[in-house]
Nucleic acid binder design. Structure first.
Lengths: 354, 354
DNA sequence: CTTTAGCACTCGGGGATAGTGAGTGCTAAA
DNA sequence: TTTAGCACTCACTATCCCCGAGTGCTAAAG
């Protein structure tokens, strides 16, 4: 059943006023907010209808109306106007996006912090999307007679290293031999394929440099493992205290500890992220996690390249300026995609100063 | 002027009771907490003295007494008994200390989280201590005709790498030549010594592989830079909401945003850390940072090896169980020192499972 | 059938008031 | 110096009341 034009106008007025003021909206206030040429009694009738239909709620009998999750949903789907960012805002984001090209996870972490600051909501950011990564190459660099550096590179172009020290001595030819062996036997294997049996066979072949294989390969496994379970970076949890719905310390604390708990968001999120086009809004009970049932989540996805995608978003009360937040997130996500798209070319040579 | 035995007993009772209950302590309560064979009136006289001397404070005329920072200080210096951790507690910490040997910063971050969980206070952890680090060696690993991996190792045994892609092709001999040049000209130089002039001279010598030098060296500079400004990891900021002194949302928020603000703690801390022996307690106004004037900080330092030290600690209200917190921190710090001390030997070979 | 004016009603919030009780400080005697 | 006794202070809580915003309903008008 389609809502009448007038009802939509009224719903929209309620939502937008409530987003701004956090106060229930009364019939008279709506008269001032819209161009409607009717009396407050008419508005009241409409409000009553909208409440009955489930788009609005009443905190108590003699208060104004507040949007319900269903109301927000309708607003987001049909009523909300796409928000254009001001020049000042885009400038600010562009500036903040001038992140140092560092390790991927640091960049993502930074981006999360930035979004939190930008929106005044707790933010999260994560990367993921590849099912099975494999090691593309191994290199061993000799440092001393008893230490060397392992460098592994994955087929998603992630490079990690580790310094390994040994109680025994080691020769350059040995290392050379090991490298060859590693690249012959352990390249192109996913985490699951790096089985103990495989290791045993290889160790056999390794001869005197026996135990090293397992050291190097378990490092590789750690790397692959950490790529599959990439962490969720959260930032700005304290921002929830900015918003009046969390004046209640207990509520605030519950949400906050949920947000800072390592893996919690990861579970709640990656499903919707993958299928979605650019941005996605989850309102109140639409969230799967119980702890988020009366919060909203807005997220945007971006491209990292090498087959990986990322998601960045914020968490806040259902009373959230969806239009603005979505616009900002989308802008940031686009920026990140571009950043990663060009990021692997060398930076312009004139960046030497700074 | 030395306090009488009895005054000390009373002060101690007040502090310990207040730490437990967060309620002002009255004269009668003290009678029950101590073995003193006097009347409450006598206690009142003593309390009055202690208040006048500045060791106690009165929230209002008709309330009990609360320790002042000066009172806590005396308690910590003279009255507090060293707390022994229970078996359960040490077991718990030992277990948590079985951190995966990962990159240094991840381990430190983990340790911070752990301490926060252990103590129910916001925690921080950081590393530092070396003034000027230099690069010990450069290695370039060829991947394709147009991409290679830089690996740099510092004299503090930190190894970092980066994948660099180029629009132009590159030959193995070129890379070889570059490596030689880099190791000849840029090894043993600190951040300050890697001047633009030096770079220009080297680029000249590099011939056709001209621009690459600057790419590699600026990566090295980034590495050195990040080592000097090593970040402060904070965790568990939401824990301050556990404590009744932060029922006031505004106070909580102020502290919390201070804690999550990147660099703020770094400035406030490294001074006392360096000179101190193992653990250190800073009570209320003893803190340099204004934002911490009515909080306390307990910290412990640990050894990372290779000339680096680290600090780990918690922030909380002045009403803090100093004995317990200090004991836990000290235990954790010792554990970390040991972990780092042995960490660079290979892990036992039987760790393959897990 | 829709809109409107009018009006009684509801209910949360703020402010005043009073009672309670824990705890004090002081005085005077032991 | 200690103690008993006592008046006093002051935060805290409960209760009441009032106020006003906002509603829902009714009945009349369009």
């Amino acid at each position: 059943m389609e809502l009448s034009e007038r009802k939509k106008k009224i719903l929209r007025a309620v939502v937008e006023s409530y987003i701004r003021t956090a106060e229930p909206v009364g019939s008279k206030a709506i008269l001032e907010l819209t161009e409607l040429k009717v009396s407050s009694a008419t508005i009241r009738n409409e409000l009553s209808d909208l409440t009955e239909m489930g788009y609005l709620e009443q905190p108590h009998t003699s208060a104004g109306r507040v949007p319900s999750p269903k109301g927000y949903r309708l607003y987001v789907n049909e009523l909300m106007e796409e928000q254009r960012l001001s020049l000042e805002e885009t400038r600010q984001i562009n500036e903040a996006l001038h992140l140092k090209m560092q390790e991927l996870d640091k960049v993502i972490d930074q981006a999360g912090r930035m979004v939190s600051q930008l929106t005044n909501y707790p933010a999260f950011a994560l990367a993921g999307g590849r099912q099975s990564t494999t090691i593309r190459r191994y290199d061993l660099i000799m440092v001393d007679t008893n230490s060397f550096i392992v460098v592994v590179m994955t087929d998603s172009n992630v490079v990690k290293n580790k310094l390994i020290r040994l109680p025994t001595d080691l020769s350059q030819p040995q290392l050379q031999m090991l490298t060859t062996l590693l690249n012959a036997s352990f390249v192109g294997k996913s985490l699951e394929e790096l089985t103990p049996e495989l290791m045993r066979v290889a160790e056999h072949a390794a001869g005197s440099a026996y135990g090293l294989i397992s050291l190097v390969v378990s490092f590789a496994m750690e790397v692959l493992d950490s790529l599959e379970h990439s962490p969720v970076y959260t930032a700005g949890a304290s921002h929830i205290l900015d918003h009046p719905e969390y004046r209640d310390v207990d509520k605030a604390q519950k949400l906050m500890s949920y947000l800072t708990e390592e893996q919690s968001l990861a579970n709640a999120l990656d499903l919707p992220a993958l299928n979605s086009d650019n941005t996605k809004i989850l309102i109140g009970p639409e969230n799967v996690a119980d702890e988020l049932k009366d919060t909203s989540v807005v997220l945007a996805s971006y491209d990292i390249g090498d087959g990986m995608k990322g998601v960045i978003g914020v968490v806040g009360p259902t009373r959230m300026d969806y239009a603005k937040v979505a616009a900002k997130l989308s802008y940031v996500a686009d920026g990140l995609s571009k950043l990663f798209g060009q990021g692997e070319l060398p930076p312009a040579l004139d960046e030497k100063e700074e």
